[in-house]
Amino acid sequence: MMANKINLLVIDDDDINIFIIKKIVEKTGYNVNMVAKANGLMAIDYLKTTMDEENFPHLVLIDINMPVLNGWEFLDAYAELNINKRVDMYMLSSSVYENDIEKAKTYLKVRGFISKPLSIERLIELFKQLELQN
């Protein structure tokens, strides 16, 4: 496994959703360092200070609708950082709009669109994909 630890960054302004994801992470059995940020700007600031390999996220789950910087604006700001590290990003949203799903496909860094709520099965699947890449 990835240095025996998976770094997960969750960008979501909903405290209840963060709590649920934290509980799901605990049930996966994986060694996960989960960091949650309430909006895209906080996530960008966090990433700027976390460039070392040990703590940089392997997986980022991004909500679309957030204050300050929404999910799309986060992705645009992330692209401007010119980070050359491998990171799997997924949009995690309650949006059922087809245009959001299609828009997610236009971002090279975004590997997929996950509808809320996140299931333990889906999270384990994402963790297994990370293991296969390393």
Rank of each mutant, 00 (worst) to 15 (best):
D45T: 08
V60E: 08
F113Y: 14
N7S: 09
L8W: 12
T106C: 05
I101P: 00
M1L: 13
V60D: 01
R122H: 15
L81K: 03
N65H: 10
E26H: 01
I24R: 04
I21Y: 07
N17M: 12
Y78P: 03
K27T: 15
R122T: 15
Q133S: 12
P57I: 05
L92W: 05
Y46P: 03
K105Q: 09
D13W: 09
M42R: 14
V87C: 07
V96Y: 15
M1W: 13
K37S: 04
K5C: 12
N84C: 09
N65E: 12
I44G: 02
M42Y: 14
I6D: 07
K85W: 13
P57S: 12
E26S: 06
A36N: 05
V110F: 11
I16G: 05
V60A: 08
V60C: 05
L81D: 03
V25S: 06
T50P: 02
M66I: 04
K116D: 04
I6K: 00
Q129E: 15
I44P: 02
M89E: 01
D76K: 07
D52A: 11
V10C: 11
V10Y: 10
M1K: 06
P117Y: 10
V68D: 11
M91P: 04
P67C: 03
I83N: 02
I83L: 12
M42H: 15
D52Y: 11
I24E: 10
Q129A: 09
I18H: 10
I11K: 05
K105Y: 10
I21E: 05
N99M: 15
Y46Q: 02
S94L: 07
I101W: 14
L108I: 14
L8S: 09
K22E: 10
T49R: 14
N65Y: 08
Y107K: 08
D88N: 08
L8V: 08
N55T: 11
M51Q: 15
I11R: 05
E80K: 10
S115E: 12
E26P: 00
F74L: 10
M66A: 02
E73H: 04
